[in-house]
Write a protein that binds this DNA or RNA. Structure first.
Lengths: 252, 252
DNA sequence: CAAATCACAAATATAGGAAATTATGTCATT
DNA sequence: AATGACATAATTTCCTATATTTGTGATTTG
């Protein structure tokens, strides 16, 4: 994004502080399903896993709370946000709304830079998909990465910083459900190669209507695959309601 | 939202921890324009103002970073996110998109509870507007509050938790610009009584098309008022780019 | 002589450890 | 079986140490 030369080959900024580094690691571990929905994130345990102090951990977890990946609730620590069918559907609808809207805007503002970003991202994605099709059971981090980059490239010319931010949130949330689905069984890899091709063609043809319909179908078809029974327990472990009004005493 | 009986008359949950309380206070102080865009948030100064330790402050600021109200950048502390015309326009467009979409959904799912929430919220807002019209220069926190509650009630039946969350973000961001405008001069109070009435009527009549057009106009008209020259300096104090790749040493 | 460079001191941010507060689980008692 | 007291575990908070940035003035260089 920023045309600067950095250490990182992929253009991402290397974390300048320990907090940032650990933030990235925990975030990744939640999205990848290493911590499951409802899991308690005990500070002492985390302190061992990632070698860091309590404050550093609290700081990163606080950020994840604002992003909707971690819950905090009162005086009883941090937990991974629970997963539910209703939540998945909400996320899917929201991602559809944002991504289609952003894709539309991108088409309107499309220039050569955008077009080449899309083509390049598609090329990478396509090559990996070809490889993975031979071994559909294997989880491929590279496929996930290029898939994301393709979808991001598509909307990268929308011109709205906030739209990109919100879409990023929703993409990550849906990624979490995708990864949760992977964990349960060898996941029937969705054959999305053709769909990606259709998306690319519609984008290059500047055909907004087709693009929106294909993109929308693509997103929702993907989400449907994660809605398998057993994947999601709608209610987490029930907690007793907190005593209201009490426990409000602190010295000084 | 949660029908529980709490200490607070307005239904909001009382902060259970110091961090939560201070989070709310700093958030409010930024939105009200007490801290201006680009301001440095020095930890030691904050430690005095809100009586709390450094870690508590860092935790709250970290959350505000994820919400887009505070910036963090590397090893040089926290600053209030800068304000710009482009940002205001982006926020306005985004809020329009989300609020109109949510209002539409609300109409579809409208029930008696929703209708009475809207009517009640309008009633409060209307009464306050009547009072404030007599003294247009005065800043009225109650007006701000009831305005928010009216807009929230309108979309409260949309059924999407994420839509409400994102809309809340955008509403707060636009509120910040509104407050910044107030600071510069006695702000010509926008005569939005009629518009609110029109919104209410369209909502009760279940007239989606009219509702969307009136609501959209209302939001954009408001934002136009904040776009006054001098309110916003588009570029903050320029910083030199950080030395890439260097300064990556930490003992142990 | 001006501008840039460097070294040093002060200010500030980040991270670690420990104390204080609150929640949780266990076991005896009613 | 329910209640209460106690011990233990976990969370929240503060204080202190280290590392980094920033400001100041002297020195060198063009």
């Amino acid at each position: 994004m920023d045309g600067l030369i950095t250490d990182e080959a992929d253009g991402s900024v290397p974390p300048a502080t320990l907090t940032e580094a650990i933030y990235g690691r925990i975030r990744k571990d939640i999205l990848l399903g290493l911590f499951k929905p409802g899991d308690k994130l005990k500070l002492d345990a985390l302190r061992q896993r990632y070698v860091a102090s309590v404050n550093t951990l609290r700081e990163t977890l606080s950020r994840l709370v604002s992003e909707g990946l971690v819950a905090n609730e009162g005086q009883r620590g941090f937990t991974v946000v629970p997963a539910s069918l209703a939540d998945l559907q909400d996320i899917t609808e929201m991602r559809t709304l944002l991504e289609c809207h952003a894709a539309n805007l991108s088409l309107q503002r499309a220039d050569l830079d955008w077009e080449s970003r899309v083509v390049a991202a598609y090329h990478k994605l396509s090559k990996i998909e070809e490889v993975v099709e031979g071994d559909p059971k294997r989880y491929s981090p590279l496929l996930e990465r290029y898939n994301r980059e393709f979808h991001q490239a598509l909307i990268s010319a929308c011109g709205s910083r906030w739209l990109l931010t919100f879409h990023g949130f929703m993409y990550d949330q849906s990624l979490r459900y995708r990864m949760l689905a992977f964990q349960v069984r060898d996941f029937p890899r969705d054959q999305s190669r053709r769909e990606h091709r259709q998306i690319l063609d519609a984008a290059l043809a500047r055909d907004a209507d087709t693009l929106v319909s294909v993109l929308s179908a693509h997103i929702n078809k993907g989400a449907k695959l994660y809605e398998q029974e057993g994947l999601i327990r709608d209610a987490g472990p029930k907690r007793r309601p907190r005593a209201a009004g009490k426990s409000r005493s602190r010295k000084k």
